[in-house]
Write a protein that binds this DNA or RNA. Sequence first.
DNA 1: ATCGCCACCGTTTTT
DNA 2: CGGTGGCGAT
Length: 726
Amino acid sequence: MPTDTHSSLDRPTPAGVNLEQLNESQYAAVTTTDGPVLVIAGAGSGKTRTLVYRVAYLMDHGVAPENILLLTFTRKASQEMLWRAGRLLNDSCTRVVGGTFHGIANMLLRRYGSHLGFDSSFTIIDRADAEGIVNLLKSSLGVGGRGKQFPSKRIIINMISGAVNKSMPLEDLVYDQYNHLSEHLDDILHLQSHYLDFKRDHGLMDYDDLLTNWKRLLAEVPEARTAISSRFSHIMVDEYQDTNLVQADIIRLAAYTHDNVMAVGDDSQSIYSFRGADFFNIMRFPKIFPDTRIIKLEENYRSSQPILSLTNDIIRNATDKYTKTLFTRIEGDLKPRLFAAADERQEARFVTGKIRQLHENGIPLDEIAVLFRSGFHSFKLEMELAAGGMDFEKRGGLKLTESAHIKDVLSFLRILANPKDNMSWNRILLQLEKIGPKTAQKITTAIALSDDPFATLAGYPAGAAWKKGLAELTHLFVKLLDNDSPPVLFDIVMQYYEPLLQQIYADDYPKRKKDLEQLKGIIAGYESLQTFIDDTALDPPDTDAGLAPEDRRKLVLSTIHSAKGLEWEVVFVIGLAEGRFPHPSAEPGGQWEEERRLLYVAATRAKKRLYLCYPRDLMMPDRTFQRVGMSPFLRELRPDLYDRLENDRPSFEPSFSSAKILPVSGKRPAKVSLDDLAKGCAVTHPFFGDGVVKRLVKPRSVDVVFDKHGLKTLHLDYAKLKVIRK
DNA sequence: ATCGCCACCGTTTTT
DNA sequence: CGGTGGCGAT
């Protein structure tokens, strides 16, 4: 594919794009309509922005939006991107097809799946479902019961899925990466083959199946390949370092007529290799697509220089170096801070106190995040925040649809969409009195073998103890099969399920009931049951879905993995202690480097302020405290790149759990009111320093230009402003 | 043989 | 909190 011979600067510019903001490389990435482009760039360099601009550019040059396919990692990311593109180039870009690999795969398979011999009604299963199947099989095959260190269901699913994603026989993978488990190889292979059969027999499809079948569709069905390749004349991929081999093949095949692919990624941010992601995909890209234009972006548009210096130093020690040294023109001189707490509790208090302080100084809560390696590392902090009456949103923990009661209700609906879904049958039958794993399995096998599952259920020879329960269940399905509106179906299920709910979860029934109300709100927006079920499996709604935007402006607590691609003014990274970070099972060589990149990802989320915290003492499994040092990754850093915070004072911040504290807004009397201020007043602020009032805003805010930090909008209720001179 | 209840334990990361 | 193992009841 010929690249342009004349200077790219001769080309017309995309509508509404301010080219002052684009450096020459970005400009080159944006202004090409043909051929493959690979953008390799560091954190905060505006990779995603080049994609948005290119969408705008393409549409400006006559490419119809419905022919553009934007593949992103999460559905939120694609929505965000389309929204940004919409601001550049009116709203026609909403017709751009944006989504995740899995979402697009689902769409295509529902449409063309029959070419591969699929039943059109397959059910998408998530991780927890997959683990559930392994559990069922483990007991029914009698595998691993006696041997003590048989791998957990989670590890087995990781291995099975890893084999698919790396296009590698499971056997090789076990010898390669799980050698310590190789004594169980036969059992593992046994489980794998039954797992595959189970999914096939019951019309279930996991995340990996969606991708492999998409690939098969492209590779084996010429008419589908042609249809898809001409439908999407331009394909864009974000976060390319997180793609696996199957995804790389999909892109190659989907673009086989035109090669119009643009991929952006950063090898230093590859943190998903445990899931089969392979950042060598980036290196391979130019070989797969000859005549690729490679564009490197080295300017960072996110973080201040002190933060960038530290993050450069984190990655400096990496063994695989493809890394570029990033620079920034953003001003700021606040060095990252390293805080050594005595223990987790003190760490939590420090973070809570700092957040409160920052918020009082005018930083909105949704511009602050706390990041950590594993979900449970934030438990102490969550308690401390809750005790202090501070609201937060936790990401990367349990999703709404992963809780047992929600799964219960969804099972009924999933059966309606796919009567062969034996996972769901099993769930429902187990709820009945006197039916345990064995009985449930007998019934589900009978159902799986029959042509009419509902008739089989009705006619199943019931034992005396559970005859009544089975009859009620049969009756429920009679009613359900008469309807097809999702909200109505939901209500019918709830009539049946609510008594069960009270009985099964007697202790926290009200809380679970509230979750179900929320689910009801979500389902109300759907007209098709199938769409609803697909969405809940592919993109589980979080517990805050449906809240008004102003209520969502919360402090974020997140695992580092779930924070990928996001940014905040202030970032705290907690739990940076030996034994916590890197994860103890990571050994120098393999996983170790990925853990280092993980810390890099965490630190590069910060725009202005970065706090790195660790507890000196950690509670060990045997409930004793043990002195641990700081994370080895921190020890490697040049000490002049950060400021150390010592906690010589025993009670650094007051504990919010031991004292009654009023909510933030009511706690502090306003120091200054609008009446005391006027345009031109000189003021001082404990955090931003000296400045001059530029403008009075609405009821209780004021714009101040600070000497060192530029323009800030401060809320008088929170900010500790002092008037120096009127 | 199967079910239900109680007590105990440990927690990678996930589209 | 969720998974597991033991034990008594059916």
